[in-house]
Amino acid sequence: MKRVLILVEGQTEETFVRTVLAPHLLAHNLALMPRLVVTRYNRAGGHDKGGINRYAPVKDDLRRLLGDTGAERVTTMLDYYGLPEDFPGLASRPAGDCYKRVEHVEQMFAEDIGHRRFLPYLALHEFEALLFTDLPRCSLFTPEAVATLQAARDAVNSPEEINEHRETAPSKRILAVMPEYRKRLHGPQAAQEIGLSQLRAACRHFNQWLSRLEALAT
């Protein structure tokens, strides 16, 4: 059994990894093990987890995880939306579609970490984009909410293209029509209801990353 360590941004992604991705990859003889970003250490000797305000804690955590020489790969599941300004490649993103832009940032991220066992993944534009894959299958959403959100989905080729503006990012759109939405609780549940195969079919950047993980089994 090969181990893959994955640095995740928050408890939503951690739950998604444990309940959706890990069982799938287990069938490929891969043990996917999530680790939350440690944002800072406190005076009591503990540490705070989740959320990214600066790049340095991400890099420090990845260095620690890469120190585990028994891990086949170290990867990430971080939101592209809301990355801190000092994140590698963010300031030099090229013009073009969101796929070219995120791939540029991932490449610069990989070069900055500089380790052959590191495989970066940034979710376009954030975890909630996955839920736009099949909104009617998400039991949380009312018919009225689905009708509003579906308009955003229908305007693009892929849920991953739903943008990163402050008021129109995927999670912001959901909260605007469903204020009771709780990311950690409802997000992974909705993703499970949609199903991994549907998510992969609709979200090519997500699918490419998962395919690269599956290939580690060979």
Rank of each mutant, 00 (worst) to 15 (best):
S171M: 11
L213A: 03
F109P: 02
H165A: 15
E106P: 03
A191W: 02
Q11V: 14
P170E: 02
H115T: 11
L65T: 04
Q198K: 14
R93Q: 15
I6W: 00
P159V: 10
L32M: 12
A201I: 09
R116V: 15
I113W: 01
I162K: 07
P34N: 06
L185Y: 09
G114W: 07
L213D: 00
T19A: 14
D68M: 12
E14C: 10
Y41E: 13
A71Q: 02
V37G: 03
M33R: 15
D68S: 10
V58T: 04
M77N: 01
L124R: 09
E128I: 09
R73Y: 01
D97G: 14
N42Y: 08
F87W: 05
N207T: 14
V102R: 00
R212T: 12
F109T: 05
V17P: 04
T69F: 09
L213K: 02
D68H: 11
H28Q: 13
C98F: 07
V74F: 00
V156W: 06
A44T: 13
T218C: 13
A22S: 13
F141N: 04
L216F: 04
R153N: 04
R212G: 10
Y81H: 12
T142K: 10
F109N: 01
L135S: 04
E144D: 14
G89L: 06
C203L: 09
D134S: 12
I52E: 03
D86R: 09
R18G: 03
T148A: 15
G10E: 06
M1K: 14
H24W: 12
R101Y: 03
A190F: 02
R64W: 11
L78C: 07
Q198W: 04
Y99G: 07
R3V: 15
T15S: 12
A152E: 12
Y121M: 13
D86G: 06
R101C: 08
R204I: 14
V20G: 05
Q11I: 15
T39L: 15
P159Y: 03
E161D: 11
N42P: 07
P34A: 09
L7V: 08
P94R: 13
A71N: 04
H24P: 05
